[in-house]
């Protein structure tokens, strides 16, 4: 979302209110241009052209529907249109429109044909539902009911908890920093080489809305452990069960939350197990 464009568009519409004696045609044109400008330049990252085209078509229909809902407005516009096409004083502008419109259409076609096709996009599910249990180094871990075994220490034994977090810090900076970045914003040294880019843990849409069991699953099984709708063939996220002990993986999970200040999502609101 580009705030500046949004403000300019809104300001334009407000200004339209103060134009003296503006008729319904002016209004419709104003709205059409405003929404078009917003769709084209106001959204970041930009919408694909095909989607933009669809929205513009819907917009045009909506404005036409609005127009025909009021018979006085409709009559007025119709009269103007008939006048434009029939009266002598409009002959030259009419000829200009008839000449220019086909040229614009041809230009558009030219760009479409010469631009060449775009590479296929593969859409992926970022947070697929996790399996109910996973096997890590011969241990079965129940992702529905088991919690981070060291989370309880946070209240029971803060000193021991601190040790686990510190170990998590070591694990993170020895193994994760190249991709997820020193500040966990997903912008490590190698991040630009991967698509999808490494997860940004500072962002509210990653660990902040997930349970620790889910994080553990993602760390242990990585990209190769994802189901097919999450395009595991592209994810560079390593399967850390090959490198790290179970404890290291729970510890680094603690550290992700500790460093970012997020809290893991509690169990109830996931609809899963009942305990807190």
């Amino acid at each position: 979302m580009n705030i500046i464009i949004l403000l300019v568009v809104c300001a334009g519409l407000v200004a339209l209110r103060f134009v003296p004696k503006i008729n319904i045609l002016g209004w419709l044109a104003g709205w059409w241009i405003a929404v078009f400008v917003f769709l084209r330049w106001g959204i970041d990252p930009p919408l694909p052209t095909s989607i933009q085209g669809m929205f513009v078509a819907i917009l045009t229909l909506a404005l036409l529907a609005y127009l025909s809902a009021n018979s006085a407005h409709f009559r007025f516009v119709l009269d103007r249109f008939v006048a434009f096409t029939t009266q002598k004083k409009y002959t030259i502008p009419l000829l200009a429109v008839i000449a220019v419109l086909p040229c614009l259409v041809a230009l558009r076609v030219y760009f479409d044909v010469t631009e060449g096709p775009a590479p296929p996009l593969s859409s992926r599910t970022i947070h697929p539902p996790p399996p109910t249990s996973i096997e890590v180094a011969g241990n079965t871990i129940d992702l529905v009911n088991d919690d981070n075994p060291y989370r309880a220490l946070e209240t029971e034994d803060p000193a021991a908890f601190e040790e686990h977090v510190e170990n998590g810090r070591r694990v993170y900076y020895e193994n994760c920093v190249y991709c997820h970045g020193d500040d966990m914003a997903g912008d490590g040294l190698f991040a630009h080489g991967f698509d999808p880019i490494p997860a940004n843990f500072q962002d509210a849409t990653t660990i902040a809305m997930l349970q620790e069991g889910y994080i553990f699953w993602r760390i242990a099984k990585g990209g190769p452990g994802l189901p097919s709708e999450s395009t595991p063939w592209l994810s560079a996220m390593p399967a850390w069960e090959d490198f790290l002990s179970e404890e290291d993986m729970w510890d680094v999970t603690l550290f992700l939350y500790d460093f970012t200040g997020h809290r893991p999502r509690a169990r109830e609101d996931h609809g899963g197990g009942g305990d807190h």
Binding site: T85, L94, I98, P102, A106, V109, Y110
Partner: peptide, 25 residues
């Protein structure tokens, strides 16, 4: 070559415009 598709699209548009104007008149 983009020429044929361009000509076709432009011709079609022209036709539509002319028929609208003709009809209204």
């Amino acid at each position: 070559s983009p020429v044929m598709p361009m000509l076709r699209a432009a011709g079609l548009t022209l036709l539509v415009l002319l028929s609208i104007v003709g009809l209204v008149r």
